[in-house]
Design a protein around this nucleic acid. Structure first.
Lengths: 137, 137
DNA sequence: ATAATTTATTTTGATGTTCAAATTAATGCT
DNA sequence: AGCATTAATTTGAACATCAAAATAAATTAT
């Protein structure tokens, strides 16, 4: 828990600096989810993104509205079914996502550098087991 | 991150059930911090607990006020320096803390059961390194 | 075809969290 | 005694969040 809380704190602080200091962690995660849905053929409907983030549809609407104002996301009505709102990241949103990914990558890399490679293998294996374990719950 | 977020979610859900369902994660952590300060000769002054939890003094005041109403904590003015407010857990608060500790212990135990013991050793070693690594930042 | 139902999203109203700044109260220093 | 410092609380504002009501579009049933 201590390690985890440190990571959360560092993530928050890293966001406060740099180009995207006006984005909260939550907003960053919304952008991330939209970008992920966009690249990986996951669904980018408003409700699906809300579901992926485990927040209510209403909450997502307000966050997205703000992110639209901040120039990171845009909404588009689905042409076939006009009830559906699809979410896309702007250039700026994509840049923010890449910066955020980079932060995570660098964090992991610095950790890996501090660990002998045999231990890295075990750590990864253990984390995969944890993932499977918690997913079952 | 996925594993960590799962853990957070599970912690939240575990709190929603059982005797202490009316306590939020934040409130539980305040109780935990107070109990820890009480057993381990750490400081239980209001400001120290706030600092330990990395929240502002004002935020702690309001949370503690609520927890007092819920019968989990009590405040006492320090007799020597009456500016200082010292925080103590009631019987109920202590019971809540023990229940929460038990949740964490059981979570860890179930994970350990799923892991061969050599891997457990390496995992612990790796987590200690992570802890040291993040603390340096 | 049109009325009723279902689905996707947004709006609304209420509650909770959080902080920074102003305030209050107690102590320490000169 | 008077001033500066310290500890805690209160206040006011900004967000976050949700459930429920409202809106809009599509589908189904009559």
């Amino acid at each position: 828990m201590k390690v985890f809380n440190e990571i959360l704190r560092i993530e928050e602080e890293s966001l406060k600096k740099g180009e995207f200091h006006n984005l909260s962690v939550r907003e960053m995660h919304v952008i991330e989810a939209v970008c992920t849905a966009n690249h990986t053929a996951g669904s980018n409907r408003s409700s699906d993104v809300a579901h992926a983030l485990r927040i209510s549809a209403g909450t997502l609407t307000t966050t997205v509205k703000l992110l639209e104002k901040k120039g990171c996301l845009i909404r588009k009505k689905d042409t076939a079914d006009k009830r559906i709102v699809r979410l896309y990241a702007t250039q700026k949103g994509q840049r923010a996502d890449r910066a955020h990914q980079k932060f995570h990558r660098e964090m992991v890399l610095s950790v890996l550098k501090a660990l002998p490679s045999e231990e890295t293998d075990v750590l990864i294996k253990a984390l995969k087991k944890l993932e499977a374990f918690f997913e079952r719950l």
